[in-house]
Design a protein around this nucleic acid. Structure first.
Lengths: 262, 262
DNA sequence: AACTCAGTTCCAAATAATGGAATTTATTCG
DNA sequence: CGAATAAATTCCATTATTTGGAACTGAGTT
């Protein structure tokens, strides 16, 4: 039985199907049968049936050229997921305030395992266009929101995340070791503020604060992000109190709105 | 074997799991175990395991108050699906043009069964906010984009859609019968233009044109939408040629970009 | 025309899902 | 507060589905 190979541990058929779906949906180009076969480690017959089922369910699409691409049903499901997310709804007005105060892009992200999933984003100009950022997953250890979120985990939960974190260097500033990350998290715990100084994307800086509920069943963060040419440490320090305040206000509202009845 | 009861026909375990997921994810409020039990028609033990697996996979979340809500993994998957959708990418610049020409909201929607799934939207003012519309599913028979899409189906494909369409009256203008719809589709085929005169939402009018590829493997539509107080038949007629032109341009680009290699 | 490679189908064996009933845990009411 | 009721969860022999090796098909190539 050994240790779990991937997501599909304990969830039987569904887990295996989701592994295949994720492989195809998160690939950066359409995959053909053989491409999937190579990474999935499943026998031909099995994989073929799994892919057929995923296509029949509308989770994948099989193009005439035999390439598998993500299906439209994913969009439909996610749209409902986003539209009725209570946390997002509670936070939205505070994100707007923060955006108005700083004039820069504001993000809301939730911790899911070792990743931050962006739930919302408020930015200034530009034609409205469904933001490629919403729903995006980034590693927690090298983003402002991610580090803020990690800083409020208890040691057990943090350990669980660290165990599955692979430190990859995205920029010269990326944190690349456990020790370095732990030191920084200590600093964040003291100040209540996390910075991302071009650690994930070159030229992008950010200041973030953690948002969480009493039982740490929700661990998230808010951030203000901007391009390095416009945003220096001065600006980040300047915004820090406002970000912390927004985070606090969201938590207060969460406690009031979701606390009582749950 | 009788006729299929729901999505889960022929896809075994996955289909059943997706039925449960969709029930919960598309409900308009959090459902508890018993709520799901009532609609799913599954035995207690079976449903419980299905829900557990969905939770373990991150497709659903189980809140402390025993309510099931859509999980974050859906967002992550859909984000990738949207970001790398070739059709959307091809159409985007033409939607922008259409928006600039009309000043009103522009939609791009794809036909999936009896539904239109909105893939993109361009609108004017308002703080950028992930559009609740993107990923939204609306019935095809009562929306501009939907009727435009239906008008280009061959009789066999159209019949298949009609067979599963339930005519529901959303407004006084909603089309409520097969005959009425067929007559209107005939008109749309002649003119190449579909109107929605407050048929889906009161106070909302729209003009749409079909977009499709040679083999009808992709059937979609573009539309310009506006509030009735600002948009009368005059405006709709005025925009019709531009909408048709945008649709044509998208099809030409599709043929050029996707035709050769597929 | 023979060959190769990608994709698809087949079916006995292995595995996971099923579902009725019992058990535990929450919630309501006196 | 404690009993009564409802909800959620666990159990396990039976049953249905998945599995996976191998054989088959067909498109593209030399």
């Amino acid at each position: 039985m050994a240790t779990a190979e991937e997501g599909g541990s304990g969830t039987g058929t569904l887990g295996k199907a989701m592994d295949v779906l994720e492989t195809v949906a998160l690939a950066d180009r359409p995959m053909r049968f053989t491409d999937v076969l190579a990474v999935s480690g499943q026998p031909r017959g099995t994989l073929h049936r799994q892919l057929s089922h995923l296509v029949q369910e509308g989770l994948l699409e099989l193009r005439p050229d035999h390439a598998y691409v993500p299906g439209l049903r994913l969009l439909k499901l996610a749209s409902a997921s986003w539209a009725r997310n209570e946390f997002r709804a509670v936070a939205a007005p505070f994100l707007d305030v923060l955006h108005r105060e700083t004039g820069e892009t504001v993000h809301l992200g939730v911790l899911r395992g070792r990743e931050i999933i962006y739930l919302d984003k408020v930015e200034s100009r530009q034609a409205v266009r469904m933001n490629s950022q919403v729903g995006n997953a980034s590693p927690a250890y090298c983003t402002g929101v991610g580090k803020a979120a990690l800083s409020v985990l208890d040691s057990e939960a943090l350990e669980a995340v660290l165990k599955v974190t692979e430190f990859r260097r995205f920029t010269p500033q990326t944190i690349t070791g456990r020790t370095q990350l732990l030191a920084e998290l200590g600093e964040i715990r003291r100040s209540g503020i996390a910075f991302d100084r071009e650690e994930h994307e070159p030229g992008i800086r950010c200041v973030a604060a953690p948002v969480f509920d009493a039982k740490r069943s929700l661990v998230a963060g808010v951030s203000v992000t901007g391009p390095a040419y416009r945003v220096g440490q001065t600006e980040l320090d300047d915004w820090a109190p406002r970000v912390r305040q927004a985070a606090g206000a969201i938590m207060a509202e969460l406690a009031a709105r979701l606390g009582p009845q749950r």
